[in-house]
Structures are given as structure tokens and as C-alpha cells.
Nucleic acid binder design. Structure first.
Lengths: 205, 205
DNA sequence: ACGATTTTGGAGCGAACGCTACAAAATATC
DNA sequence: GATATTTTGTAGCGTTCGCTCCAAAATCGT
């Protein structure tokens, strides 16, 4: 019973994601949100509760459609090393193509919102942990398949890859330069390759 | 000629740094600033021009007192590897001791302000480049001194270290956990060590 | 001492902020 | 069709925003 909603809820959330993504939490006003969501201010509060609650919803939408989608697309192909390499390649390519330098909503939130809001902080930390776990699963699979060095510490290296990923997204927002971003990633990805037996230059022992 | 300033200009700038550092650019109000700087609103505009100009000044102060000081303190000891290692150790320790999770003003600005303000973006990029250059100088010195592998690519690895540093500062704001932060840094720092000749497990060719 | 110049505190500008109140409009149940 | 319930648009609540105006206060050169 009651009047039914006239706006497209999926489009509305996507509009909210775009707003928070482009401008950040503080700099996004409720009026901006309502306009980009295609709804009125009253509907926004009626349907989503308010700015903060809407942000949590938008964050979940972003994580689902952007992060988890990207993970799911790479995983389960039986090529764990390519999964990780392609993950970084895609992030770099998208960062370079990101003309308005929006970066990653999760990373932006980790610095903007999370430190000032314990609840949202835990949510963001949980999303980032999902990325690290993706790295760890694929490192372990790569070791089992003999594609990666046996002595790789999956916990260490997965955390390292997560840190490098965060670094790429930070640097991309101030200096979206291909050479820089690829240099950041390369030493980390080289860890995943099998060591080459160093060729002896001259006879020595 | 004219009335002379009554407030301590150094303390005032430090107060502005503290404000922007703790709350971010957008979330810091001119009234917050004036109060923490110990001056009135009119004096703030008279002496510094406005919120944005004051932010640029505060950023320069932070870079000088926090970043360049940290670099200068480590460099020129003839121990380039320790300079880099200690740099990361200090960042991790300070991040763990940073109870209100202020992080690094440069990194915060790189995500908050830089993408929306081209001029400030270039300033921030310049400061970050100083950090990368510090890494590169010490990598080259370490190679010359025979403390680091001869085949280290100083450009690549210095960019990598900068990325890892950014990653540590991001993760520290959402999950200030020693094990996590040290895991992020460890594989990067291990690059600086001389390779150990792998001990042959069994006789094999 | 005096005019010129600068700083300081206070009041307040117009605008935008997050949010709410309220009545008209639209639906389901009966 | 009457009633109950929900959504929608509008108007506006009180607050805060960055910033400016202005007169009093304080210092200089002369």
C-alpha cells in the first residue's frame, strides 16, 4: 500500500557513486546528490536516510560493481600469476585513462572519511582486506602450480601488493604518468617470477 | 611604519598545519584555523590572503619541517641502505603511534586537494618527487658502495619505494597494524639486500 | 605631536550547508 | 469509492561557510 517510487533506484545509486567518487564526501552536497540521482531532496532522505547513510550504500555499490567484479573476472582461470599481473595492468591503464583523476573511491574514502568515522573505517578496511586476500589466494595457487617461487611468503607479498596498489592510486592522482606507475608496479610483480639462475660471467669458484 | 603584528607567525603557521593535517582541507573552516592559529579572522586574511593561500603556505611549512628534515637527517652518513631502511622504519613507527590517524599531510593532500586544484597538484607532485629522488640518490650510492645489487634499476626501485611509502600511509589510516605495515615494506626493502647464492639442496647438475 | 600606514577585533555580508515540515499526489486494501 | 499509507515537490528551518567592511588601536617617519 502507498505510493510507489517513481525513480530508478539503480540509476540513483550510480549517480550517488559518481558524485562521491568525483568530489569526495565532504565536498559533495545533498543538492548535488539529488540532482545527479534524478530525485528530489525529500525522496533522498525518505529512501536513503541522509548523506552519510547514502554514502555507505554508495560505497557498497562501488565495491560490488568495481572491486569484486574486477576480482571475480580474473579469478578461477587457473592462471594465478596472470590474474595478479592483469589486475595491476588494468589499474594502471584505467588510472591513465581517468581524465578527471577520480582515482578509486575506496582509496579516496580510506583517507577522506575513514579516519574520521570509525564505522565507515571498518567497512573500508574490510573491502581492502578483500583485495589483499585475492592476492594471497593467487600467490598460494601460483606456488602450488610451480609458477611462482616456492619461498614466497604469501602473507607478506599479498600485503606488499596491496600497499603498492594503494601507492599507484595515490600517485596516479597527482602524476598520472605511465613510466612512473609502471616503475612502481614492476619490482612488485617481478617477485612473482621464478628466479633466473644467475649466469656466471667468468669462471669463479 | 604602521602597527606591527602581535601574533607569533611561526606558531600561527604551525597551528594552520595542525588544522589542515587533522581535518583535511575541506573540513577545516577559517574559524577553526583562526582559533588554532591564535589570531582573528581579519588578521588571517590580512597576513595570508585566505584559506587556499594559507593552505599552500602550511603545505610548504609541513614539507620543510617534516619531509625535508627527515630526508636531511638520514642523508650524507655514508650509509645509504640504512638511510632508506630507517626512513621506512620511522614512517611505520610514527604511523603506529599516530593515535588520531592524521597520516601524512602530503599524501592526504594528494588525494583531497591536488586532483581538484591543478596548481596545488603540481606543488604536491614536486614534494613527492623530492622523496623519490632521495630514494634514487641512496640507491645509486648503495650500488657504488657495493652494498646493493649491481643490477638494481635506481629509477624503477625509487619509484617503487615511493609507491610503497604512499601505500603504507594509506593503509595506516584505516588499519594501523604493525604486522600489516611491515609486511608491505619488507619485500621492497629486501630488494636492497645483496642476493644470497641459493644453497643447492641436493646434487643436481 | 601629527599624519600615514598597518593590524586588530567585531559585526555581518550573501550563499550554501544538512535536514525537516507539510500538503498534494499516487497507490493498496477494504 | 473511502481510507490508510507512502512518495514527491516545495519551502524553509537554523547553522555554518569563506570572506569583507570598518572603526579603534598601534606604530612609523617627519
Amino acid at each position: 500500500m502507498g505510493r510507489l517510487r517513481e525513480f530508478d533506484e539503480a540509476k540513483a545509486i550510480d549517480g550517488a557513486v559518481d558524485c562521491f567518487w568525483a568530489r569526495g564526501y565532504e565536498a559533495t552536497s545533498v543538492r548535488d546528490l539529488a540532482e545527479h540521482m534524478g530525485i528530489g531532496g525529500a525522496s533522498l532522505y525518505n529512501a536513503y536516510g541522509g548523506k552519510r547513510a547514502l554514502f555507505v550504500t554508495a560505497l557498497a555499490r562501488y565495491a560490488e560493481r568495481s572491486m569484486r567484479e574486477r576480482i571475480a573476472r580474473r579469478e578461477g582461470n587457473g592462471q594465478p600469476k596472470e590474474a595478479i599481473r592483469d589486475f595491476f595492468t588494468e589499474i594502471i591503464e584505467r588510472s591513465l585513462a581517468d581524465r578527471d583523476r577520480k582515482g578509486c573511491l575506496l582509496v579516496n574514502s580510506a583517507l577522506d572519511v575513514a579516519p574520521h568515522d570509525a564505522e565507515i573505517g571498518k567497512v573500508v578496511a574490510g573491502y581492502l582486506e578483500e583485495i589483499r586476500a585475492f592476492f594471497q589466494r593467487n600467490i598460494e595457487a601460483g606456488r602450488r602450480a610451480g609458477q611462482m617461487p616456492r619461498n614466497l611468503d604469501a602473507a607478506d607479498v599479498s600485503a606488499h601488493l596491496l600497499g603498492v596498489l594503494m601507492g599507484i592510486r595515490v600517485l596516479a592522482r597527482t602524476r598520472p604518468d605511465r613510466a612512473l606507475l609502471e616503475s612502481v608496479a614492476r619490482p612488485a610483480l617481478d617477485l612473482l617470477d621464478m628466479p633466473v639462475r644467475p649466469r656466471a660471467r667468468r669462471a669463479r669458484s
